[in-house]
Nucleic acid binder design. Sequence first.
DNA 1: CGTTACCTGAAA
DNA 2: TTTCAGGTAACG
Length: 272
Amino acid sequence: MPELPEVETIVRGLRPRVVGRTVTHVRVLPGGERALGGCPPDAFMRALTGRRVEGIDRRGKYLLFALDDGRTLVAHLRMTGALLHRRPDDLPDAYTRAVLSLGDGAELRFADMRKFGTLQLVADAAEALGALGVEPLSADFTVEWLTERARGRTAPAKSFLLNQAVVAGVGNIYADEALFEARLDPRRPAGSLTRDELARLRDAVVSVLESGVRHRGVSFRNYRDAQGEAGANQAHVRVFRRTGQPCDTCGAPIARTKLAGRSTHFCPQCQG
DNA sequence: CGTTACCTGAAA
DNA sequence: TTTCAGGTAACG
């Protein structure tokens, strides 16, 4: 569920509340063991207990918790995961799969209805990360880099954007929004995009992601930030889940198709 | 390269 | 009852 802006919002919420705290107790609840990727729950609890969180960072859609023994707790929320900063007497969160108690009495709850999310404790973060391309909100995200990656590719532009090895952190919402902003047909083969079009696409990706961060993410259904609050960016979405509604720019009805197995929304007029 | 599987629930 | 969901690894 969360894409880059949602994960960034969670990281920013957790940082001031969790960095510097020590993990005093770890519980893995029913359904939580599968998030551990084969690590036995006891081993996970033992390895994490007593560790101090030195820093929290984001890479693509992953959250990285740097621990004082040099290891990293790597979390990925996939479709329905959430990381919630709570007090022990706060109401329980549905589908809580693991709870880390912190030295100041607060707790960090990992909740995940669909159980796709992961929590991995590794010596080197790279062990837990998939193949990740450039960070789109960094200076490394250049037109040259996009051009190189797009060369010769027959996959649709939409699939190209969803590929984490190309741009890390773009998901289904922001891919559709960026293609609309760049006025590009999501079905166009990535390799057919001109340098000019790729320049537009680059700028559009940056723009929609920055807007997402500014509005604390999109909450169409499950997404909640570290305080359990919904985001506000759904009010600023131009095509995603607006099938049949008039395009803001030209009034034509927003169309929907399927690409790379994902619902894809676009304006047939503006993105022709 | 596209499709399927992983899980659970909400919406059509 | 069927389809769909903000993700991605594994499969053919």
